[in-house]
Design a protein around this nucleic acid. Structure first.
Length: 649
RNA sequence: GGCUGGGUAGCUCAGCUGGUUAGAGCGCUGGUCUCAUAAGCCGGAGGUCGGGGGUUCGAGUCCCCCCCCCGCCA
């Protein structure tokens, strides 16, 4: 059986973060699991390198665009190599074969009549590379996603007849309930498609850093829209439109994506495939995002989790185990050192590592390290049987991407081992001269550890290889078949005395993330958009341009009304005149420092183009500027009274 | 504003088509063994299952109303 697994290709507008690592870990685990079972497996990851943002980012650094893309792409590849990610191919959208494949796909869609030429006019956000309808724009025509100013753009564009695929897509979702995982996301996609699909503009003339149209069309001004270009990577990697060498891996079994890019993968991508006459992938799996200590991660807060740093302090595979075990697929997860340490100590040190140590100790004392499985079935048929029942049930969880359930169940095998030792107390048996029984219990546990290690291998490859080595075998498809499928036992072997694999962690090993900066009002629970292309590009030197600064509109406001928010000790509800038709409602977390009455009539500074947020169920349409230290909090105010709405800068 | 999903022990969550004393893991706590990484094993405390009303012999599980949270859309 052929099994093709993909991650998204990561956009090279910033370095890899925990979100990228998470997707890649899951995909790597799936790929390793598939290989262990003897499936012919192909695992693809890579980088997405085209688009206006990349072109501009390179220009700012005065680098050739290709060089810029090369550099960032390499950081991803290096990180995956450091984490021993078992990708079979690292594709780049700047690869010649990819470009050729995209052009071939474009030609085919064009010949099918699925692509036509027209004009596109609308409010365009350069940063998001997206047009927005008038109705969606924020005050002053700003982008609803990133808040930056948009420009009116009319450009000639080729369109993909997405509307044509509305019905076929809905029929496909209906007929394949497992196509979009988890199910909750499926509903969202379906309701979106039911709302009607517009044709999709798939070319741009406003920049040139992209795949050009097929020469036959003679359209040198046009380049492909980044999503058409990017999505096609999943088949161009297999040789679509060039040598077709590996196209027999298509359709993919699992395509992993972050929940923010699900729509592209669950709607556009299948529509493109339908147009090309290619089968659709079996599963699109959308995972959640990670927060840190309950808060959204952001560069400005300085609380971004660096996967490399965590790996250095806690071990790459421990970190990987934590991520896979902690969160149900599709849900958001929270990273904290506390949670990681608890997981490591409880699961890895206590349940697994200590169990291995126990039998090393006993075999040393009772049998000079020799472990023989001869009597295991005689004395421990029940334990063996219970363990096999669990092991047999695991496969389903992997298939459904429920890796946390997979691990949860797998861990019950260690409990069987720990209980068996307790119940049969080999040290008592030895004293009574019942050596066969004592040694059978030790051998039982050795076998349980061996079997569990095989199953855990895809999550913790090198750690389980060490366990297997101590137990005198290697984890391969052969041993998988022998120990798991055929329920066989280990040959007689001499166990290796190895130091504890998982020393307990008593104290946090990394410096804590800086506390969130004092922001008078901040939407606390708003989720981190980890994979979001819309994230601000920050130059490596940490400096921003004057233009970037002025993307925030800070204005002088006069407090017209203020009242305490019931059931909140921190929040005040303010009505502030920013020189607009009607006052803004701003919810600010300053009640501990300012009484409501004392604020009325005074002036404050407020960010006027902040995306509105809900706090305690109330809309907050801006944020007050304030500074905080250990003595308390101070609002930032104009030294002299200014007209409401005066801009600050 | 529209549409999903959800509100169950301190924390994270399981509880299918309604049926005996509401479960798990972690945490806390009492006991116990000694092979072991202050690990293991046994036991315990902790919940008016968001609020209110209704259907039923019987509701966490169905119906209605309300409150709150996440998400998608506008």
């Amino acid at each position: 059986m052929k099994n093709y697994i993909t991650t998204p290709i990561y956009y090279v507008n910033g370095e890899a973060h925990i979100g990228h690592a998470y997707t890649t870990f899951i995909a790597d685990s799936l790929a390793r699991y598939s290989r262990l079972q003897g499936n012919e497996t192909y695992f693809l990851t890579g980088t997405d390198e085209h688009g206006q943002k990349i072109e501009e980012a390179a220009k700012k650094l005065e680098k050739p665009t290709q060089q810029f893309a090369d550099e960032i792409s390499a950081t991803f590849r290096n990180l995956w190599d450091e984490f021993d990610i078992s990708y079979d191919q690292f594709i780049r959208t700047t690869d010649e074969s990819h470009k050729k494949g995209v052009q071939a796909a474009f030609s085919k869609m064009y010949e099918n009549g699925d692509i036509y030429k027209d004009f596109y006019e609308g409010n365009y956000c350069v940063s998001c590379e997206t047009f927005f309808p008038e109705s969606q724009l924020m005050d002053g025509g700003c982008c609803p996603d990133c808040g930056r100013a948009t420009t009116i753009l009319k450009e000639e564009s080729y369109f993909f007849r997405l509307s044509k695929y509305e019905k076929p897509l809905l029929e496909y979702y209906e007929a394949h309930p497992e196509f979009i995982l988890p199910k909750s996301r499926r509903n969202e996609v379906i309701s979106f498609v039911k709302g009607g699909l517009n044709d999709l503009s798939v070319t741009r003339t406003s920049f040139s850093w992209g795949v050009h149209l097929p020469e036959s069309l003679n359209e040198p001004k046009h380049v492909m829209y980044v999503w058409l270009d990017a999505l096609m990577n999943y088949v161009t990697a297999l040789g679509y439109g060039s040598d077709e060498a590996k196209m027999d891996f298509w359709p993919a079994n699992v395509q992993l994506v972050g929940k923010d890019i699900l729509r592209f993968h669950a709607i556009y991508w299948p529509a493109f495939l339908m147009s090309l006459g290619l089968p659709l992938p079996k599963h699109i799996g959308a995972h959640g995002w990670w927060t840190r200590d309950g808060e959204k991660m952001s560069k400005s807060k300085g609380n971004v989790v660096d996967p490399r740093e965590v790996a250095q302090h806690y071990g790459a595979e421990n970190f990987r185990y934590f991520m896979m075990r902690e969160v149900p697929f599709g849900q958001d997860g929270d990273f904290s050192q506390r949670a990681l340490i608890d997981r490591m100590n409880s699961d890895l040190s206590n349940d697994l590592g200590n169990l291995l140590n126990r039998i090393i100790g006993m075999s040393e004392k009772y049998s000079d390290f020799v472990i023989d499985s001869v009597d295991v079935e005689k004395y421990h048929a029940k334990e063996l049987n219970d363990a096999h029942t669990i092991l047999d049930s695991l496969h389903t969880y992997f298939y459904e991407l429920q890796l946390h359930r997979f691990l949860e169940e797998l861990w019950k095998v260690f409990t069987i081992g720990n209980k068996a030792i307790e119940e049969h107390a080999p040290w008592v048996k030895i004293k009574e001269g019942r050596n066969d029984e004592a040694l059978a219990t030790v051998a039982l546990v050795a076998n349980l550890l061996a079997k569990a290690s095989v199953m855990l291998h895809s999550i913790m490859p090198s750690t389980t290889a060490k366990i297997a080595d101590a137990l005198g075998f290697e984890i391969t498809t052969e041993s998988y078949n022998r120990l798991i499928i055929n329920k066989g036992l280990l040959e007689t072997f001499t166990i290796k005395k190895i130091p504890p694999l998982f020393p307990r962690v008593e104290e946090p090993l990394m410096q804590e993330a800086p506390k969130a900066m004092s922001e008078a009002s901040v939407p606390k629970v708003e989720q981190a958009k980890m994979e979001d292309k819309k994230e601000t590009t920050v130059s490596p030197d940490g400096l921003i341009t004057i233009d970037q600064f002025f993307q925030s509109s800070i204005k002088i406001g006069t407090v017209l009304a203020a009242e305490e928010v019931p059931k909140s000790s921190k929040l005040l509800k303010l009505h502030i005149d920013l020189g607009e038709e009607s006052p803004r409602q701003i919810i600010a977390g300053i009640r501990e420092y300012y009484s409501a009455e004392s604020l009325i009539g005074t002036q404050v500074c407020a960010v006027a183009n902040l995306k509105p947020a809900k706090l305690m169920g109330m809309l907050s349409e801006g944020m007050l500027l304030a500074a905080k230290d250990s003595d308390g909090l101070s609002l930032i105010r104009p030294e002299k009274t200014r007209k409401s709405g005066s801009s600050v800068g």
